[in-house]
Design a protein around this nucleic acid. Structure first.
Lengths: 164, 164
DNA sequence: TTCTCGCCCTTTTTCTTGCTCATCGCTCCA
DNA sequence: TGGAGCGATGAGCAAGAAAAAGGGCGAGAA
């Protein structure tokens, strides 16, 4: 790998290699931004009485009630055990409830409770408000570009994970 | 601040509000990408015997030994309690050690041990390798754009945090 | 000069998400 | 009918955050 190491511009090799220079910063910057976002969302979500990470479950269920923990995990990009525990906590909090599937005994269906359904709107507000804040000062086009690049990165990470 | 709220373009509001449309997706996508990255980095870092989140401490200390927990926390974008505990764990793992500051009794200086110093190189490899993987298929320019946009988002999030 | 109060830094505590490894139960197919 | 698989959980480890508790330093008041 890596033939195009320093051949990019060859500008006197002023600062290291211009090719990898930025890539190293990618990790830290993504991590940092995600942390900031999580913290911000967390505070906004606190008004609804829930934590960052739980919002997705509510929104997913609002779109399609009765999903299984496994489905939720996949769609939210989280591992199954994490989803199980989060669901358990949210059930205790009264936002949703588990019901056994009549046809297949292995499956558990997750349903929104009345309280859960009532929180949907407020959560949507928190999320979009948070998104708007994050995107402040960026043009529509820039946001789309950011989204596209981020998805590409995520894709890279995923495909590598499978190969091991 | 903020008078220029909806006066941006006013283009008939074709699809909802063209401004926020993508913005809502920003949060989930960033979160998701960060999770993937964390997982990937975690595996790579495991060879060095440490966890995702600890790498930054080593690298920071490699650059400037003897920083205080507070300084490390700020530079790594983490809250002080988190840093304290991480340092404690890393001290137990043998990567670094705490020393009291002679001049100011409130301060604690964190120093890399020999083992810590020896891990610096390998960690650097893990991080840059991970960054390279993430940036796979992206042009140099795209990476720079991504970096720029991400930093802008992070900035937005931070400035809002201060205002409360 | 001495004492006290306010401030800063660190650490402790408690709660959550998230991951990996391991386990238990149910299905379905050979 | 017995085993392979899939789905949901359980247990253990770590990062992060918020709230609050210790300790030391320094400045201002008496």
């Amino acid at each position: 790998m890596s033939k195009k190491k320093g051949e990019k511009k060859l500008k006197l090799g002023k600062k290291k290699e211009s090719g990898s220079l930025s890539a190293v910063d990618l990790g830290p910057v993504i991590t940092q931004t995600a942390r900031s976002l999580r913290t911000a969302l967390s505070r906004s979500l606190a008004e609804s009485g829930l934590y960052a990470g739980q919002d997705g479950v509510i929104q997913m269920l609002a779109e399609e009630d009765g999903m299984t923990p496994g489905q939720l995990a996949v769609r939210l990009g989280v591992k199954a055990p994490t989803m199980t525990r989060t669901i358990g906590r949210m059930e205790a909090q009264g936002f949703l409830e588990r019901r056994a599937d009549g046809a297949d005994g292995r499956l558990t269906k997750v349903h929104l409770t009345e309280a859960g359904r009532q929180s949907v709107e407020q959560i949507g507000r928190s999320v979009s408000q948070c998104g708007a804040l994050a995107a402040q000062g960026l043009s529509d086009k820039e946001v789309r570009t950011l989204l596209k690049l981020l998805k590409a990165v995520d894709q890279n990470l995923h495909s590598a994970q499978e190969e091991g």
